[in-house]
């Protein structure tokens, strides 16, 4: 096993997340794509922690912090989606232009 495998896997997952973030029209799917990107970052951190820093595993600490922030982000993001849905009666990302002009 090598470090490069995990880094390539993380890069692939990150790119899939970006594609979903930009192209999806459902607001909930955008949140799912953000979760994918955060998980890609976690894979990178864990790979570095295991292969370059096996003595004191600081990468795992950072991964735990990222998991914490991701949970908070999911809660707030879904609350925002619910509030917008209640006001605008749609979850189409193309129609969320409140701050556009």
């Amino acid at each position: 096993m090598q470090l490069e495998y995990f880094l390539l896997l993380g890069a692939a997952l990150f790119c899939i997340g970006i594609y979903g973030l930009v192209t999806s029209r459902n607001a909930v799917r955008v949140l799912m794509s953000i979760e994918l990107m955060l998980n890609a970052v976690n894979i990178n951190l864990m790979g570095f922690s295991n292969f370059l820093d096996a003595g004191e595993i600081k990468g795992q600490i950072f991964t735990v912090f990222v998991i914490t922030v991701a949970a908070a982000e999911a809660a707030v993001g879904l609350a925002i989606v619910l509030a917008i849905y209640r006001n605008r009666d749609t979850i189409d990302m193309e129609q969320f232009n409140l701050l556009k002009w």
């Binding site: 949140l31 979760e35 295991n50 735990v64 998991i67 999911a74 809660a75 879904l78 989606v81």
Partner: peptide, 25 residues
């Protein structure tokens, strides 16, 4: 990657909390 605690935390937090939250939404 020899990280048993984070693997358990991943299942608990993501599958148990975040994914259920998304299903509720």
């Amino acid at each position: 990657l020899n990280a048993d605690f984070v693997a358990a935390a991943q299942i608990l937090v993501y599958v148990g909390a975040v994914n259920v939250l998304i299903l509720f939404a």
